[in-house]
């Protein structure tokens, strides 16, 4: 499977399924997509990371009118504007790990 397809499928599934399922659904999604995608583990990590990172970042900007940023910033002692990127990176990291695992677990044909 091409890089761009993997990217789009992870993004689409993350976006849709997260509405109904717990946040960690991004983990099995990345795992499964990268298992079948036949990309290198490094590419799998990157594609899962960036895909979920962007979906989460976009979603956060969609949901937050601006006040949550500053509250999360106060709570975790970080600048308000950094918080959406921090949150998105958390999601990206989980997706990336599971994506890379998925690629490595697939036996080479």
């Amino acid at each position: 499977m091409k890089l761009s397809y993997s990217f789009l499928i992870i993004a689409a599934l993350s976006l849709v399924l997260s509405i109904y399922l717990p946040w960690w659904i991004i983990a099995p999604i990345s795992l499964a997509v990268c298992y079948y995608a036949q990309l290198s583990w490094a590419k799998s990590f990157l594609v899962s990371f960036i895909s979920v990172y962007l979906v989460w970042l976009g979603s956060i900007y969609f949901f937050d009118y601006g006040t949550i940023r500053s509250i999360v910033g106060d709570l975790f002692s970080m600048p308000a504007n950094v918080t959406p990127y921090f949150a998105a990176a958390l999601g990206g990291l989980i997706a990336g790990l599971f994506g890379a695992a998925g690629s490595l677990l697939k036996p080479k044909s």
Binding site: S18, F63, A87, L90, G91
Partner: peptide
């Protein structure tokens, strides 16, 4: 619980009010 708290779909971002 950072995952629960910071994910965009059930986390604190949902408490935004315009």
């Amino acid at each position: 619980p950072l995952g629960k708290l910071l994910n965009p779909y059930t986390g604190v971002w949902q408490n935004s009010e315009d």
